[in-house]
Simulated scan of single mutants.
Amino acid sequence: MRAWAELLRVPALFTVPGDALAGAGALCAPPGHRTLLAIGSSLCLYEAGMVLNDWADRAEDAAERPHRPLPSGRVSPTTAFTVACAFTAAGLALAARAGRPALTIAAPLAVTVWSYDLALKHTPAGPFAMAAARGLDLLLGAAATGGRARPALASAALLATHTCAVTNLSRQETHEGTPTAALAALATTGALTWLLHRPLPPGGPAHHLSQNHLSRNHLSRNRRSSNCQSSNRRSPGEEAPGRHQPPARAGHRPAHHSSAPLTSVLATAYAAATARSYLHASLNPSPPLTQRAVGAGIRATIPLQAALMARSGATATALITAALAPVARRLARRVSIT
């Protein structure tokens, strides 16, 4: 069990559900059973990538990390490869159950995962492939929940940018590196935190959802008012119809206004989760400090996902997702997250 926990990197699993939930939040849609299927698909494809990563790197790990499950002999390469294939098949099957739009995203996601582990990991395209996988994972949640992914592109881009910076830093986990990667990750965190603190534009999905809700509530009233205008004559002192609209109730305000404080708190938590470790790794880019920084970057995915949800107005889902962070941190003390 210990060997499989290390191979599957169990603490990192807590960073996966937030992808699909952030995708659903970008549509301003409550998570449903299709969202749960997307989360299951994401978990399977993520674990397929974890196992396949160790299978592809078993010769390198034999020299640099002989304690890992495969080079130590605790898990056989054949078993690992079979499990990776099974996880991939399960992930695609769950996506298919969630609907054709979800499968349309899950298929290239699976291809990206396998391409990264088998061909792209040690090339300059490696960090971008890993970033694409995270972005596609968020879009998978949107496609499964609402049948469309385009409204979630902005959130996917922010999550992918964070992933690219962390993956680039992880390339020097096993050898003495340079401060550049850690400084780039630190700058990326600062830029993303600044973007998260900025409110969504008035034309954002949360605004349209609120406006559409108000329009439906007052549609019949407006029609009756229009009919009265055509049949009744106003007196000179009478106010023009349609000039005064009933004020929107507090619960109907655009979501990005009501959730702005929570978004700021979660964005600050995201920055705080990584800044110190990135700074230490930039001052001393040794393998231990770099590994610690990479672990912090992976765990920081959770408050980043939660901030994206809160920014879209999904405050309850954001709080539930943020609660996964301390659980992942506690498990990471027992099982390495990298």
Results as ranks from 00 to 15, higher is better:
R2E: 12
R9Y: 09
R9W: 10
P11S: 09
A12K: 02
L13G: 10
G25Y: 04
L27G: 01
C28L: 08
A38C: 03
A48R: 06
G49H: 03
D54S: 10
A56S: 14
A56M: 09
P69K: 07
S72N: 02
S76C: 03
S76K: 05
P77N: 08
T78S: 11
T79D: 12
T79P: 05
V83C: 07
A84M: 05
C85K: 03
A86Y: 06
L92Q: 14
A93H: 01
A95D: 08
R97M: 07
G99N: 13
P108S: 06
A110E: 01
T112M: 06
V113K: 02
D117P: 00
L120T: 05
L120C: 11
H122C: 10
H122F: 04
T123W: 10
P124R: 00
P124H: 09
P127R: 06
A131G: 13
R134E: 00
G135A: 10
G135M: 08
A143L: 01
T145M: 02
A149L: 04
P151N: 04
A152I: 01
A154L: 08
A154G: 10
S155K: 03
A157H: 06
V166N: 00
V166C: 04
N168E: 12
T174D: 13
T180A: 14
T180M: 13
L183E: 12
L183R: 15
A187V: 08
T189H: 07
L192T: 00
T193L: 03
L196G: 05
P202A: 03
G204H: 10
S210Q: 09
N217Y: 10
H218A: 15
S220K: 15
S220Y: 13
N222G: 03
S225R: 13
N227T: 12
Q229R: 14
S231M: 04
R233Y: 02
R233P: 01
R233Q: 12
G237M: 11
P241S: 12
P241A: 11
P241D: 08
P247M: 08
R249H: 13
H252F: 09
A255W: 00
S258G: 08
S259F: 04
A260T: 05
A260K: 08
V265H: 07
T268Q: 07
Y278M: 10
A281W: 09
L289C: 00
L289Q: 06
A293F: 00
V294H: 07
G297H: 00
R299H: 13
T301R: 14
I302Q: 02
I302V: 04
L304S: 09
L308W: 07
S312D: 15
S312Q: 14
A314E: 15
T315I: 03
A318Y: 07
A318F: 02
A318C: 08
I320K: 01
L324Q: 05
A325K: 07
R329W: 11
L331W: 09
R333S: 15
R334I: 07
V335F: 13
I337T: 09
